[in-house]
């Protein structure tokens, strides 16, 4: 199995994600190839918490242009993980 660090890339730090953390839902940018089971295991292992639900979404990269060259920012996968009631990830915003 791949290491937890390879699955979870970084927390999503945004207004929305911070607000969601109040509902015990934590958002991460994850490896686009990872599935929900892998994400669940990775979060449980890394933060020593219980995960009840994982929802994922593929975020398409944006088209960026520099002059006449056009390119894309990479596609990403975002996962919103709901923890067991009572569990929490401390200092989420500061990760």
């Amino acid at each position: 199995m791949r290491d937890a660090r390879d699955v979870l890339r970084r927390p999503v730090i945004s207004e929305k994600s911070v607000n969601l953390s109040a509902e015990n839902k934590y958002s991460f940018w994850v490896d686009p190839a990872a599935n929900k089971i892998e994400i669940k295991n990775a979060v449980e292992k890394m933060f020593k918490v219980g995960v009840t639900e994982v929802r994922t979404m593929n975020v398409k990269g944006r088209v960026k242009r520099v002059g006449r060259h056009s390119g894309r920012t990479p596609d990403r996968k975002k996962a919103v993980v709901t923890l067991r009631p009572g569990d929490a990830i401390e200092g989420f915003a500061g990760l």
């Binding site: 730090i13 945004s14 207004e15 911070v18 200092g91 915003a93 500061g94």
Partner: peptide, 13 residues
């Protein structure tokens, strides 16, 4: 701070 509108970022950040 990227990801936040002005004034909306949490104190820690």
């Amino acid at each position: 701070i990227p990801g936040f509108r002005k004034g909306k970022a949490p104190r820690a950040l």
